[in-house]
Each structure stands twice: as structure tokens, then as C-alpha cells.
């Protein structure tokens, strides 16, 4: 089970949430309103097994997450789950990749220090000898236009889920 986030790792004022991670149970997360810019020219790459456990991540993934590589490998990918993300977005992701399809979407990710960063993510099933053995996720830099559109959409989805969007709106 994922460890709760630690206040000592978070700089400045933060809000506390308890989110329920599908398949992994509850986790306390601490978030701030500070965004970290996506690094130009880089791709953030990770792979998981079919349960969503991280098996590989590149240096950009490590750098943007704020965690040590050793604490990422073997951990649930939902360690990046930000409470502003609606559950419906991840349901759509899992529905697509488990059906063998490619999924695309804009995702607000949570760092170890409570800050966030936006990505445009593409997730693809890793098919080996006809079987899905895991998933590769590649993120790239999204435009501000797409981020604003995603915030508007996710606010609606969260309202339908009975929660609210508490982060910055741009």
C-alpha cells in the first residue's frame, strides 16, 4: 500500500486530501497550488505491469516526480495521482488499455513535494507473444489551451462525482 505523503517533504501551505486509489486503497495526499513547468524537449517515460506497478522509469520521470528512483520502482503508478483528477479519467484509461487500445489524455500529476505538473499522456499496452504484459506511458508537454480545456472538463466531472476542483484554474 502507498505511504501517506509527509508534511516535511512539502514546502509552504498545503491542503490535505484522502483519496481512494482503485485497487490499492486510501492514501493521504498533501497538495499546494504551485505548478512545475514541463521541461521543454523531454519525454517522461514509464512502464508498469498489468496491475499498475512501476517497472521502469526514465530520468525525466524521476526528476519531475520528486521521488528517488529506488522508491518508485515497485510502487503503484498512482503515487502521482492528484486529487484534482476525476476518477472518470482513470476509468477511461483502464477501460481502454485493458481492451488493448491506446489511451490519450491530459493529466495533472502530483509530486512528492505537493506541487503539480500537467502532461499530455499516451498509454499503450505492451503486447508480447499475443499477451498484454504491461503498459508503457509516454508524456509530453501540453499546450496551455489544452490545460485550460481539461480543467473545465475535469471540474464538471468532479462535480458529477460529488467533489470539487480546488486547484488553480489556469
Amino acid at each position: 500500500m502507498l505511504r501517506d505523503m509527509q508534511p516535511l517533504a512539502v514546502l509552504g501551505d498545503f491542503r490535505e486530501y484522502h483519496i481512494n486509489l482503485y485497487g490499492f486503497g486510501p492514501r493521504k495526499v498533501l497538495v499546494t497550488d504551485e505548478e512545475v513547468a514541463y521541461p521543454d524537449g523531454k519525454l517522461i517515460v514509464s512502464r508498469t505491469d498489468t496491475r499498475g506497478i512501476i517497472t521502469h522509469c526514465n530520468q525525466s520521470f524521476v526528476d519531475m516526480s520528486g521521488y528517488q528512483r529506488e522508491s518508485l520502482i515497485g510502487t503503484e503508478h498512482s503515487i502521482l495521482r492528484h486529487p484534482d483528477m476525476p476518477s472518470a479519467a482513470f476509468k477511461s484509461l483502464w477501460d481502454d488499455v485493458e481492451a488493448g487500445k491506446i489511451w490519450h489524455g491530459y493529466v495533472k500529476n502530483l509530486r512528492r513535494d505537493g506541487k503539480f505538473y500537467w502532461v499530455y499522456a499516451t498509454v499503450i499496452p505492451n503486447v508480447r507473444n499475443g499477451r498484454v504484459e504491461g503498459y508503457t506511458s509516454v508524456r509530453r508537454k501540453p499546450s496551455r489551451t489544452k490545460i485550460r480545456e481539461s480543467i473545465a472538463l475535469y471540474k464538471q466531472l468532479k462535480a458529477q462525482e460529488g467533489s470539487s476542483w480546488d486547484g488553480p484554474e489556469d
Partner: peptide, 13 residues
């Protein structure tokens, strides 16, 4: 090789 191809496929998609 398979990993690189998967990665390229995410970029082409």
C-alpha cells in the same frame, strides 16, 4: 527493441 517500438507507437499515435 519491443520497448523502443512501443515508445515510437505512443509518439505516432
Amino acid at each position: 527493441t519491443e520497448f523502443m517500438i512501443d515508445l515510437m507507437d505512443t509518439l505516432k499515435a
